[in-house]
Design a protein around this nucleic acid. Structure first.
Lengths: 331, 331
DNA sequence: AATTTTTAATTAATCGATTAACTCTATACT
DNA sequence: AGTATAGAGTTAATCGATTAATTAAAAATT
């Protein structure tokens, strides 16, 4: 079976490829191609199951109608959900999404950027890894439309879609305090990223404002040794002189690991200890009782990021807006 | 900043684009290009940050070095993990993966296939939706390399990577019986797909062989109304004259919904009722006790599927092998 | 010195689609 | 009748990379 190109349709109908292209793209205005021929072409294209070659089209047009999405780990529900929504919105705008994983590693992020550039993506949506400012700056220099999601760099002038991390963590901590917990702890990743720093700051400020802040109650765990570090951190927290009565987990993976670790040592959540989770996980609504958690507006984040990106791509409008969407505290 | 193409490098160095292409592709064997010029070209390419245009390359070469992966829902952990591993293995072979969601809908699946074809993917990995035989057949007719994963069609001659659904479910059911549960139930999707049918068959045969089979103990739920249907199904199972003492959930989403539903009505797993889950979920190792579950070899499935696909793409070897990998019962 | 071989490149066609600029007819208008 | 105008298409260049076929000079061989 011969591959069906414009030329094939053209030959079968005895016209030029140009004519076929014109018709199939709806550009046969003001008498370019007759009604009759148009119909013939459309019918023939359908008959032969013609599928346009988007490599050729992209090459000629200078755009691929695709965007690159770079996340840390597509098997993480947060990123998976983000990807799903981004894809759905992208499809509506006629764009394909190519997803890349960084595994939080700079080299992999760099590779993915080069890779997606070689694939001529029209724009990039990135959840940047720690310390990747220089990579982001190089993308910016290349003039390729770019939007950061979930994580941003305060010193960089990049369109970003973030959430109100500081504020929501302040409020959530305050709620714990108002509910009578006097010694809440906070567990976050050992990393220097703006979004997690802000979460931590929210916790600390709320604690300070209540006159309850204890530096020892903020623990850090590392991404590669999450479970081990978590066990240690919780051990330490439970041994503190001021015994911890609540733990605020700073991300979804930390929440899962934290809850798991508590279970392992036989602690009953909400009886022996209270928890506050960032992000919704499958596990959370498994509990026979309510676990308070912070819900990110993932779908809205996806939508907003895509709008920002497509505006740049199509209207050549360089927005440097940083948008802060509101997360919600669900109790 | 001018876009850097072969031509730009060529012009800067006063040579032809052909020479640059030869060097950059390592095809300057037996005295095609001098050592000296080669070095100059390589240096200049690095200096200008040359990134090859893979649309142009793909157009010329007739392959895009990309493969399409069509799953039901990328935000589902099973598919997310599958995608992650497929991407990792693909990258090693120099392929990009473009992921598409079907949401279990035929029209979306059809759209995705056309879409990926227009993007000139070199092959397709698909977890087909119910009733999509005709779509799979049309792909086959188009001679595009194809591999089915997770779900297959027994009547179709397509390379597939599946697991031993029947056998593992038989064994798992038998184990429940051996442990003393006399009235296990089975909850699956209301759909006619080979892989879930096989799971059901495994359960039923094991029950029959033990002389315990009760048709009323097999319940079906629908994908769009999972939670509601689950509540109903469990209600009915608990009202049966032969009161159900264990439930076997046929997929990961069903497992989650099932466990959630049990919790909601205050049933304690392993005390009031035993469960058996298909797939590992985050939630499963949250329990303070062990929940038996069936673990699919996702990583191996990804690897095998990719091997089967790349064999077809590169060696033009039309394997119609159906490979059955072994799932594991974890107790 | 003449011929062959090797070295080092270039030329030009090609992949498939797009589109500005052009051609050719037929009809309309003065 | 002679010129405009509208209608219906075609031509040819182009996007960027690849590669078979060719060329031209230098080196080796007879």
């Amino acid at each position: 079976m011969e591959k069906v190109s414009l030329k094939v349709i053209a030959k079968e109908l005895g016209v030029s490829a140009a004519t076929v292209s014109l018709v199939l793209n709806g550009k046969n205005k003001n008498g370019r191609v007759s009604e009759e021929m148009s119909k013939k072409i459309i019918d023939k294209a359908a008959e032969l199951h013609y599928i346009p070659n988007s490599l050729a089209k992209g090459l000629k047009m200078g755009h691929s109608k695709s965007i690159g999405l770079i996340v840390a780990d597509i098997s993480n529900v947060f990123f998976g959900t983000l990807a799903l929504h981004i894809q759905n919105y992208a499809e509506k705008g006629g764009y394909t999404v190519i997803i890349g994983n960084t595994n939080e590693k700079l080299e992999e992020m760099e590779k993915m950027i080069t890779f997606l550039n070689s694939r001529q993506v029209d724009g990039l949506i990135i959840t940047p890894a720690e310390g990747s400012e220089f990579l982001i700056e190089s993308v910016l220099k290349g003039k390729k439309p770019l939007v950061l999601v979930d994580r941003g760099f305060p010193d960089l002038n990049v369109p970003s879609v973030l959430i109100n991390n500081y504020e929501i963590c302040y409020r959530s901590t305050k709620q714990l305090i108002d509910q009578g917990f006097k010694n809440p702890a906070f567990i976050t990743y050992r990393q220097d990223q703006f979004h997690t720093n802000e979460r931590k700051r929210g916790f600390i400020e709320a604690m300070k404002d209540a006159g309850l802040f204890t530096p020892d109650h903020v623990k850090e765990v590392s991404y590669p040794y999450l479970n081990e570090d978590m066990d240690k951190a919780i051990s330490q927290l439970l041994k503190c002189e001021k015994k911890v009565d609540a733990i605020f987990f700073a991300t979804n993976t930390i929440s899962m690991a934290g809850v798991k670790s508590l279970f392992k040592r036989g602690m009953l959540i909400q009886k022996d200890i209270q928890v506050m989770c960032f992000d919704e996980t499958d596990a959370i609504d498994l509990f026979p009782f309510r676990v308070p958690f912070i819900k990110q507006p993932i779908k809205e984040m996806a939508k907003t990021a895509l709008e920002l990106l497509i505006d740049q791509i199509e209207k050549k409008e360089v927005t440097n807006k940083k948008l802060f969407l509101e997360a919600e505290l669900i109790t």
